[in-house]
Design a protein around this nucleic acid. Structure first.
Lengths: 197, 197
DNA sequence: AATGCGTACGGAGGCAGCATCCGTTTTGAT
DNA sequence: ATCAAAACGGATGCTGCCTCCGTACGCATT
C-alpha cells in the first residue's frame, strides 16, 4: 500500500505458507518441550524438510526470535495498559511481572536471552529486543524514582536481571510459593524503606 | 583401621586409579567447557573407554556430584571461618558469597543444581548436598534475625534461591559490575530497613 | 612360577540430533 | 506451453550419548 515494495518478481506462495507453518509448529514445540526441542521434529511436524527450516531460520536463535515476535506484541499491548496507571510504583511492579512472564514463556528461554543481552555484535537476533526491554525498564524505574517510591541507586538493568532470574528459577520447576517469596524479597530490595516485615 | 571392612577380596588397583584419573580430568573439562562438556572426551583424555566412565559414574549428575565433593570440602572449610565471626549479619553475607562461588564453579552448574533441589526422590546424587546447603543457610538467617539485622519474613530457602540466581547470571557472562549491583539489590531486600540509597 | 577365577576394562555399535549440500520440483512470468 | 529463478527436502556426514559383551587384567591360591 504505502511503500510499494515488490521489485522484480512476486514472492512465491509456498514461502509464506511454509514460514507460518514452521512458526506455529515451533511455538507449540517450544511450549511443550522448551527451547532445546528438536528442530528436526519441528520440521517434520510442519511437513517440510530440515533444509527448508534452516533456510528460513539459519539458527535456533533466529527461529526463537521469530516465534517470540508474536509474544512481543502481547507485551507491547500490556505496556499500553500499564502506562495508563497513575501510580508509577505500581506500574513498575506490573511491568516487571509482564517481563517475567514473557521470559518464562518457554522453559530454558532465559539462557539464550541473557546470552543475547550481553552480546555486542547484533548478529544475534535476540539482542535488539533485549536492549529495548532494558531501556523500557529504566523508564519505569526513573518514573517511580521521581515519586520517591524506588531507591535512587536502582537502574533498569538491575531489575531486568532480577526479572530474568525469577523467570529462570520458574523454569526449573520451583513451586509458586517460593517464587513469590523471592519476588517479595526483590521488591523489598528496590523499594524505598518499605518495612513490610 | 577402625572398621575393618575388607570382606573377601582386596579391591583391584586399577579401579581406584581410573576413578581418580576420571575425576581429575572431569574437573578440568567442567572448568573449561562447563557442565555440558562431552563425557566421551573426558573418558578419552583420562585414558579409559566410555564403558569404564559410565560404570564408575552412571549419569552426568553422578560424575558432577563426585567432582563437586572436593569443592564441598572447601566450602566447609570456609564455613568454619565464617562461624567464628561475631556479627551474624556479616556471617550471613559471607556465607551467601561462599555459596554463590560454589554454585558458579562451572558454567551451567546452577541448572542441574536447581533440578536436584526441587527433586523429591533422592536418586539424584546432587539432592542431598542441596538440602544441606538450604538448612545451613537457614541457620545463618535465623542467627541474623535474632540480632535484628534481617527481616523476619526471610527464609533460608529464599536466599538459597537468590544465591543460585546470581550464580546463574554470573555464568551467562554478565559483567562484574552489574553482578555486584544485583547483589546489593538482594542485600537491600533481606536486610532490615537499611537506607543506603 | 603357574594356574584359575572373578572383576573391571574398552571399544564397537545403535541411536538421536545438528547442519549442509545439491538434484529435483514448484511457481510465477512470458 | 515454456522457461528460469527460487525454493524444496532428503540423503549425508558428523558429534555425542549410552549399552553390551568378548577380552584382559589382577589378585589369590598352589
Amino acid at each position: 500500500m504505502s511503500a510499494g515494495e515488490q521489485r522484480g518478481r512476486k514472492p512465491r506462495a509456498d514461502v509464506q505458507r511454509n514460514r507460518t507453518a514452521l512458526l506455529e509448529t515451533a511455538q507449540r514445540h517450544f511450549l511443550q518441550h522448551g527451547v532445546d526441542t528438536s528442530l528436526e521434529a519441528v520440521a517434520k511436524e510442519a511437513g517440510v524438510g530440515p533444509g527448508t527450516l534452516y533456510r528460513h531460520f539459519p539458527t535456533r536463535e533466529a527461529l526463537l526470535a521469530a516465534v517470540l515476535h508474536t509474544r512481543s506484541e502481547e507485551l507491547v499491548a500490556r505496556q499500553a495498559g500499564i502506562d495508563r496507571l497513575a501510580d508509577p510504583a505500581q506500574a513498575l511492579e506490573q511491568w516487571l511481572r509482564a517481563m517475567e512472564e514473557y521470559f518464562s514463556a518457554f522453559s530454558g528461554l532465559p539462557d539464550p536471552l541473557m546470552a543475547a543481552a550481553r552480546a555486542q555484535e547484533p548478529d544475534n537476533p535476540l539482542t535488539i529486543p533485549c536492549h529495548t526491554l532494558i531501556t523500557a525498564t529504566d523508564q519505569y524505574v526513573q518514573a517511580a524514582q521521581l515519586t520517591g517510591h524506588v531507591r535512587d541507586s536502582v537502574r533498569g538493568n538491575d531489575l531486568f536481571l532480577a526479572a530474568c532470574s525469577v523467570a529462570w528459577i520458574k523454569g526449573t520447576g520451583t513451586d509458586e510459593e517460593s517464587l513469590d517469596r523471592l519476588r517479595t524479597l526483590i521488591a523489598s530490595g528496590y523499594r524505598r524503606q518499605d518495612t513490610q516485615a
